[in-house]
Nucleic acid binder design. Structure first.
Lengths: 168, 168
DNA sequence: TATTGTTATACTCTATAACTATA
DNA sequence: TATAGTTATAGAGTATAACAATA
């Protein structure tokens, strides 16, 4: 039915196809841009971590335990925003693989403290090297000052004001 | 068993509990910081969108269709990184609610072009207002130039070099 | 009574394979 | 033969409720 309306529709479709995508509104939102950058960086990182049979969240746990031996599951849970049930499961697997140790907290027997095993330390070191390598590649389009600035601004968004001043 | 080793363990646990969490390695990684900022911003946004029965991804679709009427599902799928099967499902629900229209592409009958209905336009306008309001609150710790700088640096990470120059 | 951690389970999100129709 | 979109389904990730042990 070659009506006038139909002809207008064809023109509109043709025009839409010819134009570059306009995403001005979304690109003005920090949340959207964080997500896009995250999705650009993380998949290749996941791919490399898979060689160690680690997921990104496993890496976060190992890295935090390396820097904070003997912290409790409670603190770890809060730090990485993983709920206690899901963290229990995650730690089960790391423990079965001999990467971490769970010990009853002698100061409060309800809780458990966490520690990397020697093998966990080695695994963490390898994973951290991988992370830093990939980081360098993924942000190669940024100058060193730009990269520092980006970290500073992101941390200003999510860290409490006090911490943000201390950090990096 | 109050052995020497046990006493050392107690001391170590006490020390770990007293110290602030050290996350220097993670905080040096852009990907980690993007995720943390994203997780700070998005949950309150989700909460507000829920009042319109929208998820964040629904909002992205509405906003993109408002700015790009008559684009195909294929282009939309790529733009928001949602796989075709999952997008089909998402669009089904928006179409059932009368927010969007799917039309056979007259220039290639394999594809479908997308359009907001008048009600979809109204819903999108409300959601965009919500997004911008929340954005202002969520990034209140940044000065206007800092906010612009943050957007610029994030886009430099995920946009192709050409686009990054144009945007902003 | 409140807290730490666990188990079991449900829900959402994402990914994959096979199919239809158009080109 | 290749592409756009759909259906069905599987898998991963996340959230919730009920419970045991300890405080």
């Amino acid at each position: 039915m070659p009506t006038k309306k139909h002809a207008q529709f064809i023109t509109a479709v043709q025009e839409a196809a010819d134009q570059p995508l306009n995403q001005d509104v979304l690109l003005s939102l920090v949340g959207y841009n964080c997500r896009r950058s995250y999705l650009k960086i993380i998949p290749p990182f996941e791919k490399r971590l898979n060689k160690f049979d680690l997921r990104v969240v496993d890496f976060s746990v190992l890295s935090l335990l390396k820097a904070n031996p003997n912290i409790t599951q409670k603190r770890l849970s809060k730090a990485i925003s993983v709920s206690p049930p899901n963290l229990a499961n995650l730690l089960d697997r790391l423990e079965e693989r001999g990467l971490i140790l769970r010990q009853r907290n002698p100061l409060d027997k309800r809780s458990q403290t966490l520690l990397l095993t020697p093998e966990g330390m080695r695994m963490c070191a390898k994973a951290e090297t991988t992370a830093i390598d990939l980081e360098t590649e993924a942000t190669a389009m940024l100058s060193a000052p730009e990269r520092e600035q980006l970290l500073r601004l992101l941390q200003k968004v999510f860290l409490p004001a006090d911490d943000a001043e201390q950090a990096g």
